[in-house]
């Protein structure tokens, strides 16, 4: 089996690390060899944060090389574009949560620097030398922004994105119960698997 590289990104404070940890555990419960790493430290204060998850029998380094991610998950629109620019394979998939946290330069220099538009993402993804499938998600009814990452996770589960890696919903649920307890576990499981 070939290596699958998953790149998860967003802004410090969005729960990128937790999303990656859920994926890592889910894939591992489905019997895959996985390794990964998250950003810690300074960048967690509102900077770009990234997590790597790598799956396959011959993965050794937790880091992903540029332009070699098969799947990119982004929790913010500007980061989504940056992520595919830096990490996407020419043929890959981007799933992002469509919220905007304007970087400092966008806020300080309106008219010169602007937030990424949906159009820019689809243009980049569909340029002639590549074919990146783009999925944009948003749920305005969420009562806590810390659940935005669960919207992406539940998309992965519902659309069986990991079924080639033998993943079922149960593996996701098992991963969630490793990481959360009581009401938070209940709420997150609910997003994944509405009763």
């Amino acid at each position: 089996m070939n290596t699958i590289n998953i790149y998860v990104t967003g802004v410090g404070g969005q729960g990128v690390g937790i999303a990656a940890e859920i994926i890592l555990r889910t894939l591992s419960y489905a019997g895959n060899k996985v390794i990964g790493v998250d950003t810690h430290g300074l960048a967690q204060r509102g900077g770009t944060v990234e997590s790597f998850v790598r799956v396959g029998p011959s993965v050794y380094s937790p880091l992903i090389r540029k332009n070699s991610a098969d799947l990119i998950l982004a929790l913010e629109r500007n980061e989504a574009l940056r992520a595919i620019q830096e990490y996407a394979k020419p043929s890959s998939r981007l799933i992002y949560y469509d919220t905007l946290w304007s970087p400092l330069n966008v806020r300080l220099h309106p008219g010169e620097v602007a937030d990424t538009t949906k159009m820019q993402i689809s243009e980049y993804a569909g340029a002639s030398n590549r074919n990146i499938e783009v999925v944009s998600l948003k749920d305005d009814s969420l009562k806590d922004i810390r659940m935005q990452n669960m919207i992406l996770i539940s998309y992965l589960s519902k659309n069986k994105i990991f079924s080639p890696l033998n993943v079922t919903t149960d593996h996701f649920i098992k991963a969630l119960s490793d990481l959360f307890s009581s009401s938070i576990l209940e709420e997150n499981t609910n997003i994944l698997h509405p009763k």
Partner: peptide, 22 residues
């Protein structure tokens, strides 16, 4: 890998930097 990156670099969308902040 290098060829692939070069292909990408002539595109016009500038990357947005996001340094940490308070």
């Amino acid at each position: 890998k290098y060829q692939r990156q070069n292909n990408n670099s002539n595109e016009s969308v500038a990357k947005l930097e996001r340094p940490p902040q308070l």
